[in-house]
Simulated assay, not measured.
Amino acid sequence: MPLAISPLSPRFGAEISGVDITRPLDAETQAAIRAAQDEWGVTVWRDTRLDDAGHVAFSRIFGHVELAPVHKGKPPRFAHPELFDASNIDADGRIIDNELRRLINAGNRLWHIDSSYMKVRSAQALLLCHEAPPPGISAPTLFADTRSAYEDLPQSMKERLEGLRARHCYFYSRMKAGYPTTEEELDAMPHAVQPVVMEHKASGRRGLYLGAHARDIVGLSREEGRALIDELNAHATQDKYVIAVEYCAGDMSIWDNLCTMHRAGDFDDTAWRRDMRRTTIREAGVVAPDDHFTQMFAASRRAAEEQASAK
């Protein structure tokens, strides 16, 4: 049965239906799903009925599924090591009551690209809702179309950006969200250098590759580089490039980090449980150790963050 595709905006985002993704999919259907993802950048799947094992299995049609980082003193909530925990609850299902953890998670409410601070970039991310706040309580994910944003730039700006590279750091975004970190501490943490303009090979289009992890621009003063990053992030996240996805239990969004930015919507995470689990696909053709997320976070940890993670 062919996919049913309902666009969420003229150039970006679509709801997909017409196929049961809890069952094994033939090669033709898998190819159609990947093609839809490449075209629309974000796809939304309602009432998937996926459990953790099915979530991981479906993710494999996009490529190599990464292992989530293992944090010292914090046992994972899930039996499947591929599942990243994007929830506000602990292993006992209680809403997290830890101010430093909240400050770390607050960085997710800034526009960002997953893993842009890693030398091994992430492509698709598959975020599955297991529990959402009750009806009437908005807790969306917002997505921005970085391909259309780049295409709409003036030619003079495109020429200015050609060949520029940005340095990305995970805790820079956390510092911007209020986590207690200094520039000097950031200097000692891992960074990844990424092109400001990314070619999205699957679609043949180009897009901006920045977000809140982008700390500065190679070859520019910190002040000039950050001003340019802020200008481009603001351009890419204008309302005309943004869609919002709300969730009920069983709903899933898939986005391609190589052509989108996203952020968590604002909601009271001290009052409402939100159980979200994500798988992450490695950029195609890249070889790296399976524990590279664990290694990066271990190299970035501060004493305060170590203490927060253990609670």
Rank of each mutant, 00 (worst) to 15 (best):
A32I: 00
D216L: 02
A132L: 07
K119Y: 13
R109V: 04
I281K: 03
W40H: 07
R263Y: 13
E131W: 01
E131L: 08
I137Q: 01
C248I: 15
S17G: 10
A234V: 05
S156K: 12
G107T: 02
S173N: 10
E224A: 11
S253H: 04
D114S: 06
E151M: 03
Y247T: 09
G18R: 09
R174G: 03
Y117R: 07
D187M: 13
A149S: 08
R77C: 10
R274C: 02
G63C: 02
E28W: 07
H112S: 00
S173V: 01
V197P: 01
R165Y: 10
H55A: 07
L8P: 00
R263V: 10
L128H: 13
R278W: 04
R282F: 02
Q37W: 12
P75N: 09
K119V: 15
H71T: 14
F12D: 00
H262E: 05
K158I: 08
G93V: 02
R226V: 07
R205I: 07
V197S: 08
A234H: 04
T29K: 03
E28Q: 12
K311A: 15
R160L: 12
T43R: 07
P289K: 10
A299K: 08
F58P: 06
R11V: 15
P195D: 03
K74E: 15
T182Q: 05
F84S: 11
A244Y: 04
R46F: 06
A214R: 02
V70G: 08
L67Y: 13
S309P: 09
R215P: 06
D51Q: 05
N257D: 01
L161S: 02
H55R: 03
R165H: 10
I217V: 06
P76R: 13
W272D: 03
A57F: 05
Y150G: 02
R121H: 13
E159P: 09
A244M: 01
A14M: 03
V287L: 11
Q30K: 15
T280G: 05
Y170D: 14
G73A: 01
I21S: 00
E185A: 05
H64L: 15
H292C: 06
A264L: 00
